[in-house]
């Protein structure tokens, strides 16, 4: 089920995040890349180099937008200026779907610029699903929500994270950007079985998958996006592909960014699992 309503019936392969240190390499060498994911907010500006580069990339590559500040789980309504600018960018990129995080980050007009965890309550399900529906209706393209890494849980929670995710996407009728690295990081921090999470998500709603590296500290694990993908995360990825079928996959590498070739080579390791004949061998 690579193509589904939640990724605009597309069949994208392995992409990487478009990052500033790689601009010159990409534009001068024109490497073959299935697709690029952009951080929407970096291009929601009035002019200048970011938009010029984006237009050059759009001339040659497929681009999918990923956001970091929609805060679907915030108890208050989304910012109208943000939505208007986001829609302008959607028109510019022609992104077949758009993703942002299942989290909150602003309240009473103040922004933390963080992906803060939600309490897994029925109230949060209703509020978050309503926000996602509003955004999806306004943007007129499919929206996929990404599970975040988290370091805290709340007494208020009434269900597990994966039950919460399932309830939200069902109520919002939206897709999932399944971040298997985030599942792993949260499983370490909250002491649950990450495979149970992967086995519980509705596979037919997965629009895209994220893979990334993380940092293990003595008493907790941080989602740092500054390493190659580690083996436990590849195992979760293998299981996700087994359940979902070959799905658009994106490697995130945001800190200590190596050369383009190193990032791309790391991302292409996903092909071991995406080729159906290789799955059994790779999992073994």
């Amino acid at each position: 089920m690579p193509a589904n309503p939640f990724n605009g019936y597309t069949d994208y392969g392995v992409g990487i995040g478009l990052r500033v240190p790689h601009y010159d390499h990409i534009l001068s060498r024109k490497p073959v890349v299935d697709w690029f994911e952009i951080i929407s907010e970096n291009y929601m500006v009035d002019g200048g180099r970011p938009l010029r580069i984006l237009d050059q990339i759009l001339d040659q590559y497929r681009v999918v937008q990923h956001g970091v500040s929609m805060y679907f789980g915030s108890a208050q309504a989304p910012n109208r200026d943000h939505l208007r600018r986001l829609k302008d960018l959607v028109r510019r990129t022609g992104t077949p779907w758009l993703s942002d995080h299942l989290c909150w980050g602003s309240v009473d007009g103040r922004y933390t610029h963080d992906l803060l965890p939600l309490p897994y309550t029925w109230e949060a399900v209703r509020t978050t699903a309503e926000r996602i529906r509003q955004v999806q209706d306004f943007l007129e393209i499919p929206v996929a929500v990404e599970n975040v890494s988290s370091y805290a849980e709340f007494h208020e929670s009434q269900m597990t994270e994966w039950e919460f995710l399932n309830e939200v996407v069902h109520a919002a009728d939206c897709g999932i950007l399944l971040d298997v690295n985030n599942i792993y990081v949260s499983s370490r921090n909250h002491e649950f079985d990450p495979m149970e999470y992967v086995n519980s998500i509705p596979a037919d709603r997965v629009a895209q998958i994220h893979i990334a590296g993380h940092s293990q500290f003595e008493r907790y694990t941080l989602d740092t996006h500054d390493h190659p993908v580690l083996d436990p995360v590849w195992s979760l990825y293998a299981r996700a592909i087994e359940r979902c079928g070959p799905t658009a996959t994106l490697l995130e590498w945001d800190d200590n960014i190596p050369t383009f070739d190193e990032v791309h080579a790391e991302a292409l390791k996903a092909n071991r699992f995406l080729q159906p004949s290789n799955v059994e061998e790779a999992v073994a």
């Binding site: 108890a75 309240v107 009473d108 109230e123």
Partner: peptide, 16 residues
């Protein structure tokens, strides 16, 4: 604690 109350509480603590 409602969702809004929790978010106001945590935002205040995170920004301290």
């Amino acid at each position: 604690m409602t969702l809004l109350e929790l978010q106001r509480r945590m935002e205040q603590d995170v920004r301290r």
